[in-house]
Simulated assay, not measured.
Amino acid sequence: MGQAREAMDRLTEAVTTNQDAEAVAELFAEDAVALTPEAGELHGRYEIAEYWRRMTTALPDARFESVSAYECGDTAVDEGYYSGRNTGPVRTPDGRTLPATQNAVRIRGVDIATVADGLIVDYRLYFDRLALLEQLGLPPEPSS
């Protein structure tokens, strides 16, 4: 197993099993960039860790079910299902906080992490944002 696969596996564990925002931050380079469906582009390890902290607050029992996992050079790719029950507040990208819906969610997504010197420098997360909102029972945000 290479550095990319190891970093991706540690990220999955930090986000699901341990729900440790500090451990998430330590996996990313200080100037890392992440792209997410609902929060857009995130800059730096602490902004990325905060994104995952909000997700794990909303879904404290979150788990990841792998469909496929790849590593090619300095990049790891995971495809699978992220699921859990929404028992914590949902913080929207515009800063609003919505109460927990108690709904179960299961969304299929893909994570791509590029690693340099053992740290994630580029991270991309893809999932169907509308499916997440529908499963939470929340209306989609109006387009601007």
Rank of each mutant, 00 (worst) to 15 (best):
A14F: 07
V15P: 01
V15W: 02
V15K: 00
V15M: 09
T16V: 11
T17H: 09
T17I: 15
T17A: 13
T17R: 14
N18F: 05
N18A: 13
Q19S: 15
Q19Y: 04
Q19R: 15
D20A: 10
A21V: 06
A21W: 01
E22C: 07
E22G: 13
E22L: 13
A23S: 09
A23W: 01
A23T: 09
V24R: 01
V24Y: 02
A25H: 06
E26Q: 15
E26L: 14
E26I: 08
F28Y: 13
F28V: 09
F28R: 06
F28P: 08
F28G: 04
A29D: 12
A29N: 10
E30G: 10
E30S: 08
E30N: 11
D31M: 10
A32N: 11
A32Q: 09
V33K: 14
A34Q: 02
A34Y: 01
L35W: 06
L35Q: 08
T36I: 14
T36Q: 11
T36V: 10
T36Y: 04
T36F: 06
P37M: 12
P37N: 08
P37W: 04
E38L: 13
A39R: 02
A39H: 09
G40Y: 02
G40L: 10
E41A: 12
E41W: 08
L42W: 00
H43I: 07
Y46A: 02
